[in-house]
């Protein structure tokens, strides 16, 4: 992997992470929060693949990326399962309403 490719990959990572964090900060719908989390996670997977490329060990980098994908999928499934329960018991997915319900 050339240095240019590494720079482009890092720029893409920064972009994905920024979009993810921005999304998590402004959206109020739990499903959209999970989507933002996923965008963030895609950034970290790109880091792993790019790191394998630049350090000359692409196989290791890719196996790390696959492990991350697995862990990330499990987290997403659980987040969506929780969102279903929230919809069932609170009747809404709006985070503002949910935090008001608690009191």
């Amino acid at each position: 992997m050339s240095n240019d490719a590494w720079t482009i990959a890092m720029a893409a990572v920064l972009g994905l992470v920024a979009i993810g964090i921005y999304g998590m900060l402004i959206v109020r719908n739990l499903i959209k929060v999970v989507v933002a989390l996923q965008i963030f996670a895609k950034g970290t997977i790109l880091v792993m693949v790019a790191a394998g490329g630049i350090s000359g060990k692409p196989a290791v980098g890719q196996s790390l990326a696959i492990t991350v994908i697995v862990a990330d999928t499990v987290v997403t499934v659980m987040a969506l399962a929780l969102a279903i329960q929230v919809r069932r018991w609170c009747g809404t997915l709006d985070t503002r309403v949910i935090s008001r319900l608690r009191r």
């Binding site: 998590m24 989390l37 880091v47 790191a51 987290v75 018991w89």
Partner: peptide, 29 residues
């Protein structure tokens, strides 16, 4: 449920930041 969701989202962000850190260390060494 609210506590679980908060815990999940914040901790996932934390663990992904750690992962980016690990990726950077791996890329350099």
């Amino acid at each position: 449920l609210e506590a679980g969701m908060k815990y999940l989202v914040q901790n996932s962000v934390g663990s992904m930041l750690v992962l980016i850190g690990i990726g950077l260390v791996f890329s350099q060494t």
